[in-house]
Amino acid sequence: MATPLLKTYKKFKWLPFGNWLFSKAVCKRAPYFGTIKPKITHLSEGRITAQMPNRKAVHNHIGTVHAIAQCNLAELCAGVVTDASIPSKTHRWIPKGMTVQYLKKADTDLRAEATISLPRQWQDKEELIVPVEVFNSDGVKVFHADVTMYISAKK
């Protein structure tokens, strides 16, 4: 069963600039994500792909995409794919932690992918690890995050 977020994405994706509009709506709901100007390019139950432009506002002192911008992209992907995947009538989620690996310098636009293995039984008081891979424009993996989502049953 599609969650409200996934239903919204499916409505937006067919519109001209639909992915951009949907991404703006996500950033309006969680404004901090707007700082990286993400564009969600695919969303389905268990899978998301998003892009982030390489621009001066997200650079560090050596001219590459800074660590926290990459973490922000990872948390966006993990949160949106979790929201699109859990049964929204019976469960809720909140990010609990994140472990990251910076593998290469990120000096291009970035593409992130996150997946959740489905189907699955959703539990109460569950810690779900959502892996997020981030690639540069050449398809080289530059960053990996394991985002821990705390899943609980709604009361």
Rank of each mutant, 00 (worst) to 15 (best):
A30Q: 13
L73S: 06
N19A: 11
N136L: 03
S23E: 07
W93K: 05
H61R: 11
K39D: 08
K155R: 13
V100C: 12
M98F: 01
E113N: 10
L5C: 09
K13C: 13
A78L: 08
Y32E: 11
K11G: 08
E133M: 09
T99A: 03
K10I: 04
A67D: 08
Y9I: 08
T99S: 07
K39M: 10
A2N: 13
P53K: 11
K39G: 00
E127Q: 14
D124S: 15
S23W: 06
L110N: 02
F143T: 07
C27N: 12
G79W: 01
P119V: 12
R120Y: 02
A69C: 10
D138K: 02
S85V: 04
K155I: 05
V142A: 11
E75K: 08
K105Q: 12
A84K: 03
K13V: 14
T148G: 02
M52K: 09
A50K: 07
N54L: 00
K13M: 13
P95N: 03
A106P: 04
A112L: 06
I94N: 01
L118T: 15
I129R: 10
P53T: 11
M52C: 09
K154C: 12
D138E: 11
K37T: 14
V81G: 05
P53E: 03
C77Q: 04
I151H: 11
H91C: 11
W14A: 06
P4I: 06
P87S: 10
